[in-house]
Computed example of a mutant assay.
Amino acid sequence: MTAIKNLSSRRDWLKAGCATLALGLAAGAAQAQQDWPTRPVRIVLAIAAGSSGDTLARMVAPKLEARWKQPVIVENKPGASGVVGTEHVVRATDGHTLLLGTQSSILPKYTQKGLRFDPLTDLVPVRKVLNYELVIATNGETAKQARTLKDLIALSKKDGKGLFLAGLGPVSVFNLSYAILNQQLGMQYSAVNYSNVNDANLSLTRNDTQFIVNNPASIRPHFATGAIVPLAAISTQRYAGLPDVPTLAEAVGYTGYLPLLWTGFFVPKGTPAAVVDRINRDVQAVFAEEEFRKQVEAKLTATVAASSPETFAKEIREETAIWQDLFKTLNIQPE
């Protein structure tokens, strides 16, 4: 009987100990979430200054700084179609380095040989922030011969020479998006690639290139002057800010996959879950401010995304599967 009582006491003690441990772990996680950040936070972009993503980061940084009571520094680390900046974040060990990335942070896994990291396992999705609008646009000089996307496609076939796309690299999301669309469009073209979006835009206005895939916010100042002419929205519906620009379906009867450009926050693998939750919660709170949200959406011609670490990770997996299949169809091989 004494042995049974002792065994029962040990079980009670173990249960109490496990309960105490669980409470301790929960308290520790809560404390870690509360204490972070303990030093300046860096938001890294794998693109040059002046882009839409760069503008977004510099709008968000002061808002997060006010919440975190630490400096929030925006760093641009462009190069190798986004690989340089992404790898910098993957290798960061300070616990205070974030990536504000796009598809270009993930796609190199399938488009580049010798990649020294795996973005699908070495990055932790925290929160998708924006879904950007995208248009196909030409320049004013080319528009004299092609006022519609259908005309532009016909022009590309006129003399057998084709047209030039203002691109950002063979594995950039802009170049790949148009390669996907062109399965149905059938345009004859070659890409001329630039190191940053500002140079690509400038090449279009100079007629060094004849068309571009871009976010309207990046080229909108040229619409009023006629230097750049939007021809089609890469969307199922016309954009509110460009009501006269037809969708791809309206312009040429396009029925295929519509690539989506997004941006969101990532952290390196191994970042404590409590910190991921803290960043997600605070970013959500920033964009819950209606005035700020409207300001961002208007300035960047984008829509704030409803997101969480779990939904963002799920969307990336689903989208990655679609891109992989399309790469096979297009016979795009790692370079």
Rank of each mutant, 00 (worst) to 15 (best):
T148G: 11
D94K: 04
F117E: 05
L98W: 15
Q145K: 15
Y110G: 07
L98Q: 04
K128H: 13
G114I: 02
T142E: 09
L134Y: 00
K128E: 15
F117I: 00
T93S: 13
L99T: 05
V84S: 12
V124C: 03
S104P: 05
S104H: 03
G95N: 03
E133S: 08
V83H: 08
N139K: 07
L100F: 09
L115D: 13
G95C: 03
I136T: 09
T93F: 04
V126R: 09
H96A: 13
V84F: 09
T121C: 03
T111Y: 02
E141L: 14
D94L: 09
T138Y: 11
Q103E: 14
F117A: 02
P119Y: 07
E133F: 03
L98R: 06
L98S: 00
I136K: 08
R116S: 02
E87A: 11
P125Y: 07
Q103H: 13
R147A: 15
G114Q: 01
E141M: 08
L123M: 07
R147W: 08
I136W: 06
K113P: 03
D122E: 12
T86Y: 04
L120K: 08
G140T: 11
V83A: 06
A137I: 06
N131E: 14
T86P: 10
L134W: 05
T86D: 09
G95A: 03
T138A: 08
K150R: 15
G140I: 09
T97H: 02
K113C: 00
L100G: 10
L115Y: 03
L134R: 13
T97E: 10
L120Y: 14
T111M: 11
G101V: 00
V89D: 09
H96G: 02
V135W: 13
A92G: 11
T93P: 04
Y132W: 11
V135S: 07
V126A: 08
V129N: 10
I136S: 07
E141F: 06
Y110H: 15
A143P: 13
V90H: 01
I136L: 15
V135Q: 10
P119I: 02
T142S: 05
E87S: 10
L120M: 14
T102D: 04
V84E: 15
K144N: 11
S105C: 11
T121S: 14
T102S: 14
P125L: 09
N139E: 05
G85I: 04
A92R: 07
H96E: 03
S105P: 12
N131M: 04
S104A: 14
T142Q: 13
D94I: 04
T138L: 12
T138H: 11
A92L: 07
L99G: 05
I136G: 08
K128S: 15
T93E: 13
Y132T: 08
Y132M: 11
N131W: 09
A143M: 05
T102V: 00
K128Y: 12
E133H: 15
R147H: 15
G95R: 06
L107C: 00
P119F: 00
Y132I: 12
